[in-house]
Write a protein that binds this DNA or RNA. Structure first.
Lengths: 139, 139
DNA sequence: GGATCTGTGTCAAGATCTTGACGTGAAGCG
DNA sequence: CGCTTCACGTCAAGATCTTGACACAGATCC
């Protein structure tokens, strides 16, 4: 097995490079990558539950619980406890932060894709989705 | 920022799905994904140092040190301490295990790529490499 | 209505990885 | 040669995430 020709290894390398670049870009805003992901999803889908949030960020419910605690303490997220399941939303401060963070991340993604045209980007996105779908089906 | 149209998010989803599938496939062999990665690189490049190994697996030297400790205890890896820097290689048992593990991982990758032809695979691999290279250049 | 089952929030424990720092060798340069 | 610089191995500490477990709410079915 040649490790350089493996697509799986290339995938890991790209994902690691992207994460590293995101960390560097978000550091000035005082956010970690999981924290940013959490805010981004919260921005797209307000009033969301802890468990749904955890699935979107690809962590366990427990990890998301800790993450939300930190974000609440920072005043970026507020909880609406109307029942047993608490639903979370961005505070005005959180909305302000996610706008800046999202712009920073978009810039990083743009740098990553700078060598690809619009059609190539669509193609890459489609290929990745096909790979994800193929892995989802139980063999 | 629509999270579904983001290539970065698609990348993370695919990488997570691949890792999960690899974990499931390697479980029967008693290996974790980092352990497998370590053995795979060790198989391709014997007599390698701890630090070089760490870079290949995308972890810190300290984490790799712990990892190697476990693999040595399992009898899969042996250390040749000819100087200050120790160099590591697979034991016969380790070679036997990596053959089986590599086959299992290749099968997972094949399932992931089952919807893509040979040309499409080359194209995807090339796109990923271009993305990694673009992120490597300091803005 | 009562029973079963799935999904959720939460607690505790443990494993894994990282950051930070130190001492030590090996190479590059005056 | 002596000095600097850099990379490596290693120790200690801390943060982060996971596994395992429990009680409870809501849905489904009889």
């Amino acid at each position: 097995m040649d490790v350089d020709s493996s697509i799986g290894y290339a995938l890991k390398r790209t994902a690691t490079a992207l994460r590293t670049a995101m960390e560097a870009s978000l550091r000035s805003l005082g956010l970690s990558v999981p924290q940013y992901s959490c805010l981004e999803i919260l921005s797209a889908r307000p009033e969301i539950s802890n468990a749904d949030l955890a699935r979107g960020v690809f962590v366990t419910r427990q990890a998301m619980h800790q993450l939300l605690g930190g974000l609440q303490e920072a005043g970026l997220v507020s909880a609406v406890g109307s029942g047993r399941v608490q639903r979370y939303s961005l505070t005005p401060e959180g909305q302000r932060v996610i706008v800046a963070a999202s712009a920073a991340v978009v810039a990083v993604e743009e740098r990553m894709l700078s060598g690809l045209g619009a059609a190539e980007r669509r193609r890459l996105h489609d290929d990745l989705e096909r790979c994800t779908a193929a892995l989802g089906e139980r063999a």
